[in-house]
């Protein structure tokens, strides 16, 4: 668990982070979201002491981060940034092995870990380990960046717009892969972004910030259903509901009374937003739900619009 207590950071005359108190639960993916200049990156960087605090304190598992020298602290916290920052003069293998080498792992253990991580991020170890960063595409570089951040198996991962520089197709693919990676590994992740879609898709919890302060904290659904502030509504906009739909599969809905037999068919794993899109594309109000080849029920436009609000 990461606890930030009354954290404040000033630059010259501007206050980047203004008396922020926040708790990040273990194993959750917490998104720091807000317009540029809202202090989300600065707040993230206080956690691994890339930015030193002017006031307040940060605790990880109850222990103040000030009790550990910054270098030692950082070796036990994964860190991935938008510009990736792969070391251009080192191979992919050496890049991934950076923190394990700093921690003094032996060569055999490092090699095994590199192979494991490359497979984990979906790259073939045999063909990628000896490449140089210049030979990688943007998406590949960012995968290596994530692998490098995970190298020493840190319990906490800090990510600063890691997919921000990618093209939309690659970005979406990496977001989905990362979401499933997170479900498997159960790391505590703090993730900075200004991309609402990304925040809603990935976040267990969203911390919405403005001008150095937290506006509201909660799951995407909580923010959607109960915005405490006009800013929350304005920031997420009219498409918020649609985006929320993308978080949920048809399987998550309570079975309704909608009859089967519509011509359009969707799978049980389809998310609600895609199901809606199919209805619009096919110009139908109802679709048949399949589980494998088996028909298990039906879903109507009304189900999504009305039932969703209650059950989510």
């Amino acid at each position: 668990m990461i606890e930030l207590r009354n954290v404040t950071k000033r630059y010259d005359t501007t206050v980047a982070v203004d008396d922020v108190t926040l708790t990040v639960p273990d194993g959750e993916l917490t998104i720091l979201l807000g317009p540029s200049g809202c202090g989300k990156t600065t707040l993230l960087r206080t956690i691994n002491r890339m930015v030193e605090l002017d006031a307040g304190e940060v605790l990880i598992d109850g222990q103040s981060i000030r009790s550990t020298p910054p270098e030692v602290l950082r070796r036990h916290i994964g860190y991935a940034i938008q510009s990736v920052g792969l070391f251009p003069h080192m191979t992919v293998r050496r890049n991934i092995a950076t923190v394990p080498r700093l921690l003094g792992w032996d060569a055999v253990r490092i090699e095994a870990r590199v192979t494991e991580l490359l497979s984990l991020v979906g790259l073939d170890p045999a063909s990628y380990a000896d490449k140089r960063p210049a030979e990688l595409s943007g998406g590949e570089a960012q995968r290596i960046g994530v692998a490098r951040a995970l190298a020493a198996d840190p319990p906490v991962l800090l990510m600063d717009e890691p997919f921000g520089a990618l093209d939309p197709i690659n970005r979406e693919r990496l977001q989905r892969e990362f979401a499933s990676l997170h479900r498997r590994l159960g790391k505590t992740v703090v993730f900075v972004t200004h991309d609402i879609e990304e925040a809603v898709l990935l976040g267990d919890r969203i911390v919405l910030m403005r001008e150095g302060q937290i506006v509201q904290t909660g799951s995407p659904e909580e923010l959607w259903r109960g915005p405490e502030h006009q800013f929350v509504r304005d920031f997420f906009g009219d498409e918020f509901g649609l985006r929320i739909l993308s978080r949920h599969r048809i399987a998550d809905l309570e079975p309704g009374a909608t009859p089967q037999g519509a011509s359009a068919r969707v799978h049980l794993d389809t998310n609600l937003r895609d199901a809606l899109a199919i209805m619009v594309t096919e110009s139908v109000e109802r679709v048949t739900i399949l589980d494998g080849e088996r028909v298990v029920g039906g879903l109507s436009f009304c189900d999504i619009v009305t039932q969703v609000r209650g059950s989510l």
């Binding site: 540029s36 200049g37 960063p133 943007g138 717009e161």
Partner: peptide, 15 residues
Amino acid sequence: MASSTTSGDRPATGP
């Protein structure tokens, strides 16, 4: 490599 500028690295206010 991905872009080398890190807009997110700094607060946008002030240089």
